[in-house]
Design a protein around this nucleic acid. Sequence first.
DNA 1: TTGTATGCGTTATCAA
DNA 2: TTGATAACGCATACAA
Lengths: 336, 336
Amino acid sequence: MARRRDPSASVKIIDVAAAAGVAPMTVSRVLNSPGHVSAATAARVREAIERLGYVPNLIAGGLSSRRSRMIAAIVPTIANAMFSDPVQAFTDVMNQAGYHVLLGLSGYGGGDAERDLIRAVLARRPDALLLTGATHPPGVARLLRDAGVPVVEIWDAAASPTDMLVGFDHAEVGAAVADFFLDRGHTSFAVVGADDTRGGARRQGFFDTIARRGGKLVAECILPAPNTIADGRVALRTILPKLGPRTALLAGSDLVAFGIITEARMQGIAVPERLAVCGFGDFELCRQSEPPITSVGVDGTAMGRLAAESLLARLSGRPAPSRVLVPFHILPRATT
Amino acid sequence: MARRRDPSASVKIIDVAAAAGVAPMTVSRVLNSPGHVSAATAARVREAIERLGYVPNLIAGGLSSRRSRMIAAIVPTIANAMFSDPVQAFTDVMNQAGYHVLLGLSGYGGGDAERDLIRAVLARRPDALLLTGATHPPGVARLLRDAGVPVVEIWDAAASPTDMLVGFDHAEVGAAVADFFLDRGHTSFAVVGADDTRGGARRQGFFDTIARRGGKLVAECILPAPNTIADGRVALRTILPKLGPRTALLAGSDLVAFGIITEARMQGIAVPERLAVCGFGDFELCRQSEPPITSVGVDGTAMGRLAAESLLARLSGRPAPSRVLVPFHILPRATT
DNA sequence: TTGTATGCGTTATCAA
DNA sequence: TTGATAACGCATACAA
């Protein structure tokens, strides 16, 4: 390959080596395994690095070492605390550990988008991958197997994770909320939520428990993901005619729950007397709004941190848990 | 370098070339400049790629081409719609264009964290950089100059951007809100917000206009960034004793505004009669809550998209605007 | 339209 | 503790 651009444009390891009077390999050692270099030499090298403003080229380093020190994180969106909290925590921990995070947004469109994105990021040879959920489109399994990188899946404790997993069982959440309502004497139920896999699993768990214990589902409103406050308001108006004298509602997220509560106040529907509402996610919004909204708390920050720690353990050869279940809690507040 | 690991572990361009009966360079062309390869050859190559499950190695490609097709985006946090919206839009546009986004979270700690992060991501040789704000710690200017990559700064229309800029003037926002209040006959003012640069600029613009037009600041509550709904509630209780019969308040964000409104209702303070409140950000929360909250709308999604488009123009050699001002709008609702 | 030769900047592996 | 050497897997430049 002939030279393009100015070959002397940027300072490289060989320049630092020359300036410090050592071999390039010694500069590399100062940066990557400081313990193996004498203090005096290291000092000279560091001085040269500082003086020349040398910034190592991790592309070259990655090619040579076959380690990119980069992790790809793929989530549907970050426009939602559900995923932005875990990504924030994951990135913080990874940055601390010297890794960078490549952000992939797969959207809610399903199928091909996620596979293409995974394929594209694998081209960067990440040292590991964080994925959302445990069900992926066809082709992903082979991609991941061929790539041979550690994978952690969050937000879903499916039966057969690809590799490692940090999450919880969404059907159990639905069942727990149903039990919570049933134990308080509710017999009439409703759901509002999005058409995504995990929301569907929560509703299914809710339905199953209700059916088993003799409750009745009187209203259901499913809207395309991701759901917003406005969706919650619309949903309440939609199901209004079907509401009996006392109904218990499971919302797909706290945004939806907040929209429902807000609209209920507008419509003069007594909460929780006529309509009891439980959200999902325990966002600050439902803790701090009036009335405070009952919700299911899942610690997204902890999930992101645990996912990062699991991967870091694996990457450094330490034993890594293949399945971490994070707890969820029903947080009873004024809307139930 | 002697071989490490299994050299035949992953399929590379040479394997595809052999399988398709062409030279490696032809495979590279099929992937990177499809127009220059005959249809028949391209088909054979694509078949081989598919059959072998070849995933190109962008690390090697990047080292050779000196283009990483990666952009680093550095924001304080994504746990806040203020920054997660632009990052979401920026990432979407960049992914469309075949670039990946490396996410850097600099926090609100200031100074060194941001510089170290920029230094670290530059080691990956990104083709461009997105930064938040136009004021950076010492040392950043040299890093960026030496790196020689295009930079776009968002969220702040400072006098002297590093390179390109997509934002608006925060002092103008403060001044506009002050004018808005003054025009409605307010004479007594308050502010609640965070101790960050841009929030400070908004307050300064607010103060200057109030002073110039003869208003009076009666209360001020500054809390460490990032501010939450809970901060708004605390702030209202703090400034309560200083509130006169009619006060107009500028909040640092919609979360803060929502907290203030919620707490005001608890405390029996009439909104907007005794306390008028204007938020910042036009989050869905303040549009859909009751009462709907007056806010200053800035289109974070547009900012992210425009930032991406500016960089893409520059990267492809097209003329790129060095300064894009995005409009802001005061959206009067029920709290003023 | 296709192929050949070469180097991108670093690090693993030896040897000293 | 330090150095010399040879890859890492691909794309540029040129030739055919």
